[in-house]
Simulated assay, not measured.
Amino acid sequence: MKLENTFPNTIKTVEELREITGKPSELVNNKVISYLDEHCRGFIAKSSFLTLSTADELGFCDVSPRGDAAGFVYVLNDKQLIIPERPGNKRMDSMRNILSNPNIGLMFLIPGLGETLRINGKASVIHDEELLGKMAVNGKNPLLGIGVDVEECFIHCAKAFKRSELWNPETWTDKEELPKGAKILAAHAKLPNVDEEAIGKLLEKSYRDTLY
């Protein structure tokens, strides 16, 4: 169901948008390539974290984090890569979306680096023992994999990281003041006889025993 826009003074056309923002430079217009060259491969090899964006057949969007040791994403060739699927919460939001809508967007991060690598393409859910075995950790193969046929690759500038000072420890919130995942889960789930302490213990057990 499409909801009516409730925000005032919204932009309705690309022309209106361009009147405010202007047009991209020649450098920006020409930075997109359609394959994984040596620079993209080198970036992926050093990346330990990415965000994965998918949408279902109705366009409902989801962004999911993926992380592991640097180089955890397997580059099959200059047009294909595979993201291992480690044990998680079994919601399978990304994979369920991919089964109905293969369009996918990835953003690769390298800790300490402001620039990010963005890759767009078409995704498939992979269950291939030979390929998944190449991404085994501690003798355990990934449960599944997300294969991506690459259509676009480009570097995104560091302005967001510079503005946020994300990699500057001096700007980080004190640990005592950080939101508590267990507290939030308890408040949202509202399960009978399951409080913050119980959920905290479940999370710790999961982090300790089922990373792979």
Score class of each variant (00 low, 15 high):
Asn5Tyr: 05
Ile11Gly: 11
Thr13Gln: 02
Leu17Asn: 06
Arg18Thr: 05
Arg18Ser: 09
Gly22Phe: 07
Lys23Met: 14
Pro24Leu: 10
Ser25Trp: 05
Glu26Asp: 15
Val28Pro: 09
Asn29Arg: 15
Lys31Met: 06
Val32Tyr: 03
Asp37Met: 00
Cys40Trp: 11
Gly42Cys: 11
Gly42Pro: 07
Phe43Thr: 00
Ser47Arg: 00
Ser48Gln: 07
Ser48Thr: 03
Phe49His: 09
Leu50Asn: 01
Leu52His: 00
Leu52Glu: 09
Ala55Arg: 03
Asp62Ser: 07
Ser64Lys: 14
Pro65Ser: 10
Asp68Glu: 12
Ala69Pro: 00
Gly71Val: 11
Phe72Thr: 12
Val73His: 03
Val73Ala: 02
Val73Leu: 01
Tyr74Phe: 08
Leu76Tyr: 02
Asn77Pro: 13
Asn77Gln: 08
Ile82Ser: 07
Ile82Leu: 15
Ile83Gly: 00
Ile83Gln: 08
Pro84Leu: 13
Glu85Lys: 09
Pro87Ala: 06
Pro87Met: 11
Arg91Gln: 07
Ile98Ala: 00
Ser100Met: 14
Gly105Arg: 02
Gly105Trp: 06
Leu106Ile: 05
Met107Ile: 15
Leu109Asp: 03
Arg118Ala: 12
Ile119Gly: 01
Ile119Tyr: 00
Ile119His: 01
Ala123Asn: 03
Ala123Val: 02
His127Ala: 10
Glu129Ala: 05
Glu130Pro: 02
Leu132Tyr: 10
Met135Ala: 04
Met135Trp: 00
Val137Cys: 07
Val137Ser: 04
Asn138Gln: 13
Asn138Ala: 13
Gly139Val: 14
Asn141Leu: 09
Asn141Gly: 08
Leu143Ala: 15
Gly145Pro: 12
Gly145Phe: 04
Asp149His: 11
Glu151Gly: 08
Glu152Cys: 03
Cys153His: 06
Phe154Tyr: 15
Cys157Gln: 07
Cys157Glu: 05
Phe161Trp: 02
Arg163Gln: 04
Leu166Glu: 02
Trp167Arg: 08
Trp167Leu: 02
Asn168Leu: 01
Pro169Phe: 11
Glu170Ala: 13
Thr171Pro: 04
Trp172Phe: 13
Lys175Trp: 02
Pro179Phe: 04
Pro179Gly: 09
Lys180Gln: 06
Ala182Arg: 08
Ala182Thr: 07
Lys183Glu: 14
Ala186His: 10
His188Phe: 05
Ala189Pro: 06
Pro192Trp: 02
Asn193Gln: 05
Glu196Lys: 06
Lys201His: 07
Leu202Lys: 01
Leu202His: 11
Leu203Arg: 11
Tyr207Gly: 05
Tyr207Asn: 08
Tyr207Lys: 14
Tyr207Leu: 13
Thr210His: 14
Thr210Ser: 07
